[in-house]
Design a protein around this nucleic acid. Structure first.
Lengths: 204, 204, 204, 204
DNA sequence: TATGAATGAGTCTTCATTCAT
DNA sequence: CATGAATGAAGACTCATTCAT
């Protein structure tokens, strides 16, 4: 990578981060390029030197956010533990630990979801989300399958369904926490997981 | 209610339904009042005879949608069944049965979520969602509590957490279904519920 | 005049008076036909049964206002007094006595002036004002001319100029009073008139 | 002042002058931003780069007009003359000399007066006019007071009243001239002033 | 490369006027 | 006669994008 490329990449990151702040504060439509430029401490025109359009910039924010959060998931899934149950719990803690960090930009997630319904951005976002969910479900599914194969989990358990539901639950608890400051997603997830694991275990 | 009031109410409903279609197709910001008027087969100005602003109309759509879907929840929760497990299953079926019906306007839900982040509409929507979630969780919580009290469910179960998580799961499965045409939320929910109920049951 | 005509005339007056209130409160452009209808306690459409357009109604208010205020001028000019000086003073008192009464609708006068600059209404209003000023000046001029002819006023006095200036002064003092609540137009006019009359008198 | 600031100031002036023309031709409400932009040979949006709203632009026109005309008043009042009478005459000539210059934009003045009654702009304009009149009256009052103090004018003269009346007369003669092309405000003022000065002089 | 002045397409919203009842 | 629901023309204002410097 040349020095110039490196310079451009740093600048791009700088703009993306500024954009994330503004998009999170105002939503996609409410965000104004001028404000993003101010936030990034650059001129308005400069934004267009690095991104072709507001939509492109928004998608770049999406990718940046994605990269940022998927690490927690990967770490959580990779965490070694004493059996599938423990690893599930570890994953749960890892993900829920994100809340404090992403609380302020959680609006972004809702904007991303919402962008999937915008006629113009639907294609990009819908496809990206499909892939993300596929991967998440697949990872969690593998974890549960291991539990079944190892005899820890009951053979009748449907790993696909449980994985999809758990992935969804994590999302949805953040959503509820967003609406209600007194709602504690981490504790809720932990308590719920106890019951789910009880259901998963093979108590033969 | 006078004949005139009745007339106005019908007209309002007509506009709200037209608006729901257009908001679902284009999102809040993308939707254009002129298109809503065309969809409702009325003049642009007429919209403003019934709603003070685009925001008000959007909120009316939200309330309409809310009323429309909460029926399924109420029916599901009220459904008599043989014990808490059966009633949970019935609720699950009732809610999942909505999918076919709301699939086309599910974008609306994401727009509503997103509206909670718009600075201007945050107040209204956030408060409304908080209340809705409170009620849903409370209903489901009651159902689980009955199961515990009746000895059907294990006494260590945390009804709050399970209720919140289940409510969230239903939301989130629709979300995943929205991103993936091949994803079957009803089947997933049914399979997942088997495991959850296994975890809930008191097998003493 | 038939009973019907009489009915219509009363209704017209009712509307004109309501319109005067609203135009005074909001200005011509700011006034809304719907508000005038409410003020007149009639339906919006009814206004158009009596006036062809907003402009016509405004002009009717102008004529009504004109008729209302010119009485004071006529009375003042007609007032018998001991010589031209006394009659001038009487006229001055008569006109200044209007202030308390018209203070609240003085905005109307400014709106009428302003209407003379609106391209669409210019013709009507400009012509009307020209005629009104012609008449006022002519009356006052006659009064001063009598003073000159009777030997009370100095023969070098230019009655046209003095009349025009006095008429203008009365207008302008109301204008200043409009801008400044502490400004007393009546007292100012009285004090000024002393000096003017001193200048008019033939002290040979 | 930086080069940029200078550039922006010129542009602002350019827009204000264009706006003055359009407001004078169509009145405040009748004027259309698009027309002002055309008159200024710029794009519609550019107007908003320099002024926040139509009201702000209108007020800027008011300030511009004010600055433009007050020079004549200051010059007139400052003019040295042989005694108070001569200075009054000089002031009169100075102000009346404005007529040819401002005839075409005199409508603006009526629009400014009218703006003082618009609910939204009342505050700004009313306060501004009060101050302007205060200053004018104060200046003229000082001039007359000098005449009294110097023994040239009669000690019983009320300088406040005469000043207010004269200031008003000048305004009002322009108003009459606006309604009547054949009316000569300068000549009228000159002739009237002869009588007023006769009334002011101390002929002991 | 960086900038920000300029632009005009696009939108919400208002309101005088019409007309069916 | 009276009404008020319906209308659409009109206008203020926003903002993504361009481009000359």
């Amino acid at each position: 990578m040349s020095a110039t490329d490196n310079y451009r990449q740093n600048k791009k990151d700088q703009i993306v981060k500024a954009a994330a702040v503004v998009f999170a504060a105002s939503g996609y439509s409410g965000a104004v390029i001028a404000d993003i430029a101010i936030q990034a401490r650059i001129g308005k025109g400069t934004v267009y030197e690095y991104f072709d359009s507001k939509e492109d910039l928004f998608f770049a924010v999406f990718e940046w956010y994605q990269k940022k959060t998927e690490k927690a998931a990967i770490d959580g899934i990779a965490s070694c533990g004493d059996g599938a149950s423990e690893r599930l719990k570890a994953l749960n803690e890892s993900l829920m630990g994100l809340w404090a960090e992403i609380k302020d930009v959680f609006m972004l997630v809702m904007e991303f979801w919402s962008a999937s319904s915008s006629t113009r951005m639907r294609q990009r976002f819908k496809a990206a989300f499909k892939q993300i969910y596929d991967e998440y479900r697949h990872s969690v599914c593998g974890l549960i399958q291991e539990g079944i194969d190892g005899g820890e989990f009951h053979p009748d358990v449907k790993p696909d369904a449980v994985a999809a539901a758990l992935v969804g639950t994590w999302d949805a608890l953040f959503l509820q926490a967003w609406f209600d400051d007194h709602f504690d997603p981490a504790k809720t997830a932990r308590d719920f997981l106890v019951t789910v694991i009880r259901g998963l275990l093979n108590k033969a």
